[in-house]
Design a protein around this nucleic acid. Sequence first.
DNA 1: TTGTACGCGTTATCAC
DNA 2: GTGATAACGCGTACAA
Lengths: 364, 364
Amino acid sequence: MTRRKKGRTTIADVAAEAGVSPITVSRALREPARVSEPLRKRIAAAVQALDYVPDLHARALASARTNVVGVIIPSLTNSVFADVLRGIHDRAEKTDLQVQFANTRYSPQEEERLIRLFLSQSPAGLILAGIDQTAAAAEMLRAAKLPIVQIMELGPDPFDMMVGLDQPAAGRAMTEHLLEAGYRRIACLAARLDPRSNRRMAGYRAVMAEHGLDDDSLVVQTKAPSSVRVGCELLREIVAQRPDIDAVFCNNDDVALGALFECQRMGIAVPERLAIAGFNDFEMSAAAEPPITSMATERYEMGVTAMDMIAQTIAGEPPEEKVVDLGFHLCARASTQPRAGARPERQPAPKKSAARTTRVREAR
Amino acid sequence: MTRRKKGRTTIADVAAEAGVSPITVSRALREPARVSEPLRKRIAAAVQALDYVPDLHARALASARTNVVGVIIPSLTNSVFADVLRGIHDRAEKTDLQVQFANTRYSPQEEERLIRLFLSQSPAGLILAGIDQTAAAAEMLRAAKLPIVQIMELGPDPFDMMVGLDQPAAGRAMTEHLLEAGYRRIACLAARLDPRSNRRMAGYRAVMAEHGLDDDSLVVQTKAPSSVRVGCELLREIVAQRPDIDAVFCNNDDVALGALFECQRMGIAVPERLAIAGFNDFEMSAAAEPPITSMATERYEMGVTAMDMIAQTIAGEPPEEKVVDLGFHLCARASTQPRAGARPERQPAPKKSAARTTRVREAR
DNA sequence: TTGTACGCGTTATCAC
DNA sequence: GTGATAACGCGTACAA
């Protein structure tokens, strides 16, 4: 029959060149320790001479395994996820794992579809955002025999592994900071309304309620993606609705920055007339004037850790801790300067997710 | 011999279910037009019933082709590239192409290594940033028989296709805008110093020189990645070095934002005492107070177009225009308000890259 | 430690 | 329009 030989250099070519069998070349490449020194050298030379590069597809087909880790997250626009993805890629480069990324656009149905698609490609591992998968997706994931890491937040009953932070606790912590700084009529500005943002807001409302300060009229939200522009709009809304507020807690730093700009436009002094707090500690927040208080989250580290957990599991050494709490820490800055007469900051009572939580007041 | 049958549903299973041969199923999936209506229906039903998903590795091995498009860009931290990548992904979803991303960290050597790596996997196409590949990389790319798109900027002698903008012209245009607005001692703040930023700066210096205004002491740069923080620092530097400047042109909007914040801190009125212009028109710039003048670039569209060009080429209908100039347009805002007595804005003389360039003065 | 035999799931080729 | 056969390049299982 006609052969459809391509010009590609195969493992057989290398084997012939080195005078060994193909399988020995295969082993020399993947498990060098199991091949004798001299053969290994001859094979390495042959690989070099022929410029041989393994065919990953053939490898995947033969072994029914791949080195591809699927990453399914909501968005790339949101710099929160860009940071995580950066950590994932950086760590992946140090292993032989490849990253295949897809975004769900915040749709659980799309997430389910992507999970099904990825699982059908027998990936080496899977990284997912959050804990709100559909029932069908959850079923597939529990049945799947591969390392899975859920990132961004923590929750009960992980599919496999988890690395993130306690979002409600982070929302509580920021609210408590504002209360301790002497603010009382604290509004909440929220964009996008993804599950994590909602849980932070739940933390906010819980603390406000505990102090008898919770009020629907203090919350303004929009489904629009978070952005500086949206921050401007939300600030105008809340000021129109509740001119008496003395602080705003924004669910993301871009919203907080928009709020700050709008205050400048409207002649509202920050923090004297209105304090502003954000979330996620984007780089710009510390540089703003006044610097904006935020809650730092370990997004890059989250990506690195997630990839690490998968690499370790594949290597047969699964991490001892299946759930990693990366915590959060308050970056208190001038935008939430304590009011005269406010009681001094104190360490918060120990909380479930506060193990690695620190509190920082930054100079500027 | 032992069979190592996995539970995987194969094309043979579907064929049996539908009562046809495997190859017919294969064709029905890839070239429906070549299979008769009734068989197509039976096969579709079988696929549905068995929840069959093709094995892409087997497909790639058998056909010596893949649907993977490699994307090799400098960084993910820089939101400029995040926008491009978003466009690439969005367009990829509408075809059957997959995206494999890698970042060079702005290193040509790393880029060369990645190009070699990608080419060895026989990808369906390749997307690269810029025109400054190493000689070795260029040689490989010219020899490669696959669609290649260079993005971000334009230049002579493309490997294959190109979509971007004329960076020096964009630098010129912004400088001309500042001159027309009545500014004369225009400084330039540059971070990261990647090739495109350098070309924009070259445009700036050329225009300044044409007006007898060019001066080394007007330029402050750093190799540090561009950021708001860096913008703050660069502004302090330039003000210390040249207290007489009346405008700054920043090579990226985050730098411009930092400059604005630092002006606020130092009590420098913008634009009365100092005008500020950025580049790339990030979302926050229009929302800032005062809104920051910037040069909009079509980054998302660039990603979409690049992927489109590859998809078209693969489909056997290569785009008529191998080089696409997406242009740029000035977003003139309050931060570069024309000075009293400045001559009115006029349309710039037609320029090579100005075909799709528009000029906009935004209200706010 | 190294080699032999075969199958992984799919498609190219050629025949009907 | 449909099917039989033989690769594609590699790794698993087992034998030596």
